[in-house]
Design a protein around this nucleic acid. Structure first.
Lengths: 186, 186, 186, 186
DNA sequence: TATGAATGAGCGTTCATTCAT
DNA sequence: TATGAATGAACGCTCATTCAT
């Protein structure tokens, strides 16, 4: 039973399976055999699309964080509302339970994988937030001089909250919003 | 040639070598053989002190971050000066070039290991900073209501700056100080 | 982009590419994919012309040594000059820098492949040389009783010189000629 | 059931098994698993002694040809008899049915392996024969000017005979002796 | 306490070959 | 005739861990 697919489709299939498994079991404990079995293909096929397990891993992380960040970037670019309002409305976790990837972030294990994903996401978020701050300053909403630093704090600062246990998402979001509005002096 | 040492000393020796190698080559690429060879000891000996490689790794990270954090905790606990002054004087990288561990953080490789260390350090730093903020509030220097959130932002926010490339340590430190003073409204 | 060619032409194309690559990288390290790529063709196509990699290899070696030996056979058959003169004029390497195959023998790698080629060439050369010796004996130029043995020595003996390093082709050729004339007592 | 041996002994064990199997099945078709199984140890153990299969192969060939050549070298060095007599008595195949390695050369398969062994043996034999010729010339038994070339012919020339099929060992030996005496003009 | 030879399971990777198109 | 995605079996190699000494 040999099923041939369009390369793009196959590649995405591998991506998705890889991300899911890396998320569940971590990099080391996920084998190429696992990934291949998950989509019902021969191990060797993975190597037509990715030269190595490591590249597959990095690509998967990269693609996934791109998706997450793109959602936020959309919001940021298409909003003309004041920054304060934006903060009050924005999602603080860029993750949306609706995506097919939701499980990735929420498996019980693999804190390390989660951390890596978080850091990569932050990295990509900073320039977007910086642009947002710049617009706000141009409109006179904030007075900050050093926007890159402010953006980094706004983004990475959330990590501290998000990575904590024992508080529900909603409460985390509220605290983040309140603090941001205070710190940016909006 | 068989050199017998005090258990504690041996254990520390293994710790140090492990930390160094994990830092240089990462968890997966560092073997027990590497570690044993680095201190001129048989592989089997490592297993008298640590039940497994993973435990050794976690212990090493833990011990190291403890050391880093302890330096900062000392400062925080023995200072009566106003928070603003404290911020102006504090080291923003808890690392000190004098420690024997300096290389760990600064090998060219191993972003992943570095990230892990950073996150763990942040985690341990938050309660200390929170206490610092509490003292400041008691003295009327700040008005913040939600100290845990503020502490998290102060600590993790720095990560965004620290992980960036292309800026020297001094400039990073200045930007961090300026932003903190602004955000905390000191 | 699908280019259809005459079967014979295609087959030859595959031969040539295979020979070149086997010569450069050796049997094991040359893949069918390499060969196919070298001529810009799908892997599967090779299997329309050769049932397996091993057959392709053997055919390639065989065809190539045939070409080399044919050059020498031509010379031998169309010459009426005395053996001594023949030796003085003959090429000692049957290879000719003009052939498209020249590189095969002179890649830096692959001693093993080279050796194989040499041995196969010798094998095919012996009967030709034997005939040459027979003609010479009939003309009274030599006295040897055991021509097969003599032929074998004349051919394989050269291997020892040819496989040596650190002497230029010309000097090798001279030494071979001088020795042959001495040993055959011409 | 774990049997520990002296490294030297283990290494030799691996050597012997490897040589035997390479001889029987050829390089490619012999797996490290085969070799390990043959001596009843774990595959991994082979890698304590040899860094790779290829190195193991080369070492095995090298060690074996050393043994073969050493037998001949002994003869050559400890003989004061005239060259002609030496040739009449010498073994033309350096192999001796008594050695534990006898089977290596005489498996049905693996012509390639056999060729490789032969060539390597010749390579090592040449300098010894050259020395022999030098002694003979000093005693006035031969007149040859170019001894390196003569030695190469004497050694490699035999290959042509040895590699032929369909003649028994004894006849091959006789023909070789007769030709050598003729060619060297003894 | 210390050694280091030995284990053994597993993993990433390769590649000749097949086959649906 | 030609493609190239897919197969699948195998292989070399690694290494955490064990254990006899």
């Amino acid at each position: 039973m040999r099923i041939t697919k369009e390369p793009e489709e196959r590649k995405q299939e591998i991506f998705d399976a890889a991300l899911k498994l890396f998320g569940e079991k971590g990099y080391e404990k996920t084998t190429i055999a696992d990934i291949a079995k998950a989509i019902g293909v021969a191990q060797g096929l993975c190597y037509r699309y990715f030269p190595s397990k490591e590249v597959l891993f990095d690509s998967a992380i990269d693609q996934y964080t791109d998706i997450l960040v793109a959602q936020f970037a959309d919001l940021a670019e298409n909003s003309d509302i004041p920054l304060k309002e934006f903060i009050e409305k924005m999602p603080t976790t860029v993750e949306d339970k609706n995506t097919k990837y939701y499980a990735v972030f929420h498996g019980p294990q693999n804190k390390k994988f989660h951390d890596q994903l978080s850091l990569k996401t932050c990295e990509k978020l900073v320039p977007i937030v910086e642009k947002l701050l710049l617009q706000a300053r141009q409109k006179g909403e904030i007075q900050l001089a050093d926007l890159p630093t402010a953006a980094a704090f706004c983004v990475y600062g959330q990590l501290g909250i998000l990575l904590e246990n024992g508080m529900d998402q909603k409460e985390k979001a509220d605290r983040i919003r309140t603090f941001l509005i205070y710190a940016l002096q909006l």
